[in-house]
C-alpha cells in the first residue's frame, strides 16, 4: 500500500516541463549531495566543504573515480566522500548549477 501511495505521489509531481541544465543540476545537487554538503553549495557543509565553482574535471574525478585531478589540493584532509558513479551522465548539469551566476 505504501508503494502504491508513493507511486501515486510520484506521478502527480509537477515536473512535466523540461528543466534547464542549471535547474536539473540544482535538483540533483539537493537529492544527492546535501546529506554531506550544505544545502547552499556556496557554504561549507557539516561533512563536505563548499563545492561552488567545481570544474568538470574535479566533478568527474570525485564522483566517478573517488580521487582528485592531478595537482589539486583537497579542501579537507578527510577523504570520506563516497563515489556516486551513477551520476556520470549528469555531471554537465551539476557543473552548470555549481558554476551558474
Amino acid at each position: 500500500m505504501l508503494a502504491l501511495i508513493l507511486l501515486g505521489a510520484a506521478c502527480t509531481k509537477k515536473e512535466t516541463k523540461v528543466a534547464s541544465p542549471v535547474e536539473e543540476g540544482k535538483r540533483l545537487y539537493a537529492v544527492h549531495c546535501t546529506a554531506c554538503h550544505a544545502a547552499d553549495p556556496k557554504k561549507d557543509g557539516a561533512v563536505g566543504p563548499s563545492n561552488w565553482g567545481s570544474s568538470l574535471e574535479l566533478l568527474e574525478r570525485k564522483l566517478v573515480h573517488g580521487d582528485y585531478p592531478p595537482g589539486y589540493t583537497p579542501k579537507r584532509p578527510t577523504r570520506v566522500m563516497v563515489q556516486l558513479p551513477f551520476l556520470k551522465d549528469q555531471i554537465p548539469n551539476l557543473h552548470a548549477y555549481l558554476n551558474s551566476p
Partner: peptide, 18 residues
C-alpha cells in the same frame, strides 16, 4: 553538534531536507 556546525557555516537549518 550538527546544529552547531551548520550555524557556524552559515547554513540554513529551516530550508534543508536533512
Amino acid at each position: 553538534y550538527r546544529a552547531h556546525i551548520d550555524v557556524k557555516n552559515g547554513s540554513s537549518i529551516m530550508a534543508s531536507s536533512y
